[in-house]
Design a protein around this nucleic acid. Structure first.
Lengths: 191, 191
DNA sequence: AAGCTAGCGGAGGGGTGCCTCCGGATGCAA
DNA sequence: TTGCATCCGGAGGCACCCCTCCGCTAGCTT
């Protein structure tokens, strides 16, 4: 989404050059730290990874949650944008391609999502954005008779995002299992 | 599994009556606390919930992990046992029924599993036990032509356990999505 | 190049949880 | 009932993390 759908809840990127550098380094460091140690990662560790004082972290992100949200929003933006260049594919292929990206996206965000799930409005708007990106793909596929129509996009999100939570020893297995789930999506349409 | 498959890695249940009471109260309190606050729940809080001194907790469970394992093993035992009374159902129905129980089981164990996933031998043997319970059901269903045979039980576990990680607003939706996944399991068999 | 100001770092106070330790309590056997 | 081995509770030392605060640094403007 553009600035339209996303409220300015998250901290603004600062304007001075060095400050902007630090801001970006912090978000990147936070992404790594959260991915590595879960949502409880030490903020002092994040600052250390970013090569920045702890004070700088707190100036940019007054609370742990602000940092979560900055990381999260960044990821959602990327995923959302990626739906656009799928419009020309056939309905089913477009949906499958996007769901693959979705899987790759959610996989690393587990701890993050769990934190934000409960009471963040940022999470709400990110959710809205993801749906805005994926739902049209889904409905197009349904209209074309490629996907069963007794389920909604919400069901698909949960089916697929669940998949990403499981740890897969190999990408091959992950794709195979994803394939099974996708067959389930088609199944109703076939009958 | 009986004592055969399960190594005695976990702490023994103590023998004196009061000690046994405390032990059980601690495991129950830990289950609640972990479910509520995630794996990082305070051990002092667990002791408080159990109505027991912190010292007692540490005597029974020298480390946080011991406590995890005790809770986890308890749950796996119950799930594993539940496979036995499904033997008389038709292959497909038995598998579906067990997977439903599996979903109910894993749903609450998210944080727990995440902790143990990486380097616990207890987790390994629990895994073995779950497979011992579910795999026969799966293979029976495959032999009967009810489940596609280009996938293994491992694939099913990941598909289904992933589902449980997602948060479902209603049990109905969870069942609907589970139904989609199950259709995917059948899909190949039909062809 | 000189001044203004946004931005920086990290010391330190406060808080929380982890785990040890041991004097006292209590179940159990005889 | 008596004695002892087992078990209990929680105070306290330690480590870690959160967050604030302020003297200093260095972009940006003119």
């Amino acid at each position: 989404m553009t600035s339209a759908g996303m409220p300015e809840v998250f901290t603004q990127r600062p304007k001075r050059a060095d400050a902007r550098r630090n801001y970006d380094a912090l978000v990147a460091a936070a992404r790594d730290a959260f991915a590595e140690n879960g949502a409880a990662a030490s903020l002092e560790d994040v600052a250390r990874r970013a090569g920045v004082g702890i004070g700088t972290l707190y100036r940019n992100f007054p609370s742990r949650r602000h940092l979560f949200e900055a990381v999260y929003v960044e990821e959602v933006r990327a995923l959302s944008r990626s739906a656009e260049d799928l419009a020309e594919l056939p309905p089913w292929d477009a949906l499958v391609a996007w769901l693959h990206r979705f899987v790759a996206y959610v996989a690393t965000k587990r701890a993050l999502a769990e934190q934000l799930l409960h009471d963040s409005e940022i999470f709400q708007s990110c959710r809205t954005e993801i749906y805005a990106a994926g739902q049209p793909l889904m409905e197009r596929a349904q209209a074309a008779g490629a996907v069963r129509d007794d389920i909604g996009f919400d069901d698909v999100v949960r089916l697929i995002s669940g998949l990403t939570m499981a740890q897969f020893p190999s990408p091959e297995q992950r794709d195979r299992v994803l394939g099974v789930a996708l067959d389930g999506l088609r199944a109703g349409a076939a009958r």
